[in-house]
């Protein structure tokens, strides 16, 4: 039971993890992007269309990443250059992406694609329990869990990461010390969008293997909440995404085991859990929250 819940958690947590990691990068640079919800959709849609046209899921993933990045560029422009409200701009982006993907993706609802196939890691996938748990997924799943430590290294042990965090913490100081703060913020938001795009690719190319409008179903919003839950740390984001995925999987598995709980009640648990997590960790969060975000999250207006 535990193994299958964890397996489900890893599987269902993957798109959320991509989106969360992307949002960690953006928020570390001081930009909140609720538009990840839209960037996921754009990625799912662009990835699906490209795969349908080229038969290549790899090109599909690339297109998803590009499209997600492009969508987030709009947000970066709005908040960095025009200085619009971050939350509102993110929601505007979400609306726009929802509309555009429903329109553009419409002819592809019926198309069958060459999906991203599972790839068992040779040797390791035969191990008892862990083999199935960790080593019999698709490339995008492995990618997500490898990416987390990579982003952690980049954020905390490279010059780039330092610059990014500096911009997120003390934008004025960073600017005064000669950092191109706007460029850094643009880059961070676009990187976040790229990852959200890949999250979408996982949804449409590997997980559901089909395109339906609005198929992100709030995963982007969850990602934004999980970033706070993970206190802006890529490794804790893994924990958050897997827990969220596991709760999601658990509520489905509980039903299959014949426990007569209302599915609607069970569906609430991931959201309530996230909310409780935010509450319990509120103090720790405030401590680690990038200074630049305080204005967005805690400031009034």
């Amino acid at each position: 039971m535990l193994a299958s819940v964890l397996e489900g958690g890893i599987r269902a947590g993957t798109p959320i993890l991509y989106a969360t990691l992307g949002e960690v990068i953006a928020e570390r640079a001081g930009i909140v992007n609720l538009g990840v919800e839209g960037a996921i959709l754009v990625g799912a849609c662009a990835g699906f269309i490209t795969t349908a046209q080229t038969q290549s899921p790899l090109l599909g993933i690339a297109a998803a990443a590009l499209a997600g990045g492009a969508a987030s560029l709009v947000h970066a422009f709005m908040v960095v250059t025009v200085r619009a409200n971050q939350i509102a701009s993110g929601l505007a982006l979400m609306f726009l992406c929802l509309g555009v993907t429903s329109f553009v993706g419409r002819p592809y609802v019926a198309v069958k694609i060459n999906a991203v196939a599972p790839l068992a890691v040779p040797g390791l996938s035969d191990l008892p329990v862990v083999g199935r748990l960790l080593f019999s997924h698709d490339v995008l799943v492995y990618g997500a869990y490898l990416l987390a430590p990579l982003i952690w290294l980049i954020l905390f042990y490279t010059k780039w990461g330092l610059a990014l965090r500096a911009v997120g913490e003390r934008q004025a100081v960073a600017f005064a010390s000669g950092l191109p703060t706007a460029v850094v913020q643009y880059a961070a938001v676009v990187c976040g969008g790229v990852l959200a795009g890949v999250a979408g690719a996982h949804l449409s190319l590997a997980y559901a293997r089909s395109w339906v409008e609005g198929m992100s179903n709030g995963r982007g919003f969850i990602a934004v909440a999980l970033v706070i839950f993970a206190t802006w740390h890529p490794l804790r984001a893994v924990l958050g995404a897997v827990i969220f995925g596991a709760v999601f999987a658990l509520q489905l598995q509980i039903q299959a085991r014949g426990v007569a709980l209302s599915p609607y009640f069970l569906d609430m648990t991931p959201y309530l859990l996230t909310l409780v997590g935010l509450l319990l960790l509120a103090r720790a969060q405030r401590h680690t929250m990038p200074e630049g975000l305080k204005e967005v999250f805690e400031g009034l207006k």
């Binding site: 709005m78 025009v82 701009s89 505007a92 726009l96 929802l98 509309g99 555009v100 429903s102 329109f103």
Partner: peptide
């Protein structure tokens, strides 16, 4: 698609924002 009007709404939002 009905989404056409969603695009219009979102764009108005963006322009005003």
């Amino acid at each position: 698609p009905y989404a056409t009007v969603n695009i219009i709404m979102a764009l108005i939002f963006f322009v005003v924002l």
